[in-house]
């Protein structure tokens, strides 16, 4: 069988992850509401948690290891938030696809054969850069380069590398012993039980 063909379980796993993350993001709003006042005195600092939004872009490729998994999942997550009534309208789709693309690049560069920490870190960082570049060009074009744009992108990239990149890697590692990844290449790396 053709290893790059998407099985139904691959498609469904990406799609269900996108749905699960729209629940996670919704719940995060309640946690964030309690934490955000501490960061609001300097808006670029809000980018500290930017990485959370990009976990699907890294987690899905790490699990299913198929070309396009990051774009599909992140784009779908964006569509989902639009269907749920996102305040950002159509642009979340553009941005979602762009973030997915950013996350996808490092995996594509490794020909979908490398899924280690370095690739995950790069995927997280690139997804973060792609997302914030969009923000900076379209939402904050008049903001000052050094006072706002640069720190904003840099903080978000660092946050995405750590939260989305290493965080996804950590999630996959924690999921291995639960057996839910047994049908995926990632699961084959686990000791047989």
């Amino acid at each position: 069988m053709n290893p790059s063909r998407w099985r139904t379980v691959d498609i469904l796993t990406c799609a269900v992850l996108a749905v699960a993350f729209s629940v996670v993001f919704w719940a995060w709003n309640f946690v964030w509401a309690a934490l955000s006042p501490a960061l609001s005195f300097y808006p670029p600092l809000a980018a500290v948690v930017y990485g959370l939004w990009l976990i699907p872009a890294v987690l899905a490729p790490l699990i299913v290891r198929k070309a396009g998994a990051g774009i599909f999942t992140e784009g779908l997550a964006a569509l989902m938030s639009l269907l749920l009534g996102s305040p950002y309208g159509m642009t979340v789709i553009y941005q979602g696809l762009l973030q997915g693309l950013g996350g996808e690049l490092p995996f594509a560069a490794g020909r979908y054969r490398r899924f280690g920490n370095a690739t995950a870190l790069a995927a997280g960082a690139l997804a973060g850069v792609a997302g914030t570049l969009w923000d900076v060009f379209y939402w904050y074009p008049d903001a000052d380069l050094w006072a706002f744009k640069v720190p904003y992108v840099a903080i978000a990239a660092a946050s995405s590398a750590i939260v989305a990149g290493l965080g996804s890697k950590g999630l996959v590692k924690a999921m291995l012993p639960t057996g839910v990844l047994d049908r995926f290449p990632a699961g084959r790396e686990r000791q047989r039980i």
């Binding site: 057996g179 047994d182 049908r183 699961g187 084959r188 686990r190 047989r192 039980i193």
Partner: peptide, 8 residues
């Protein structure tokens, strides 16, 4: 006979 992937 069948062995599930990930099982010994």
């Amino acid at each position: 006979a069948w062995r599930h992937a990930g099982r010994r």
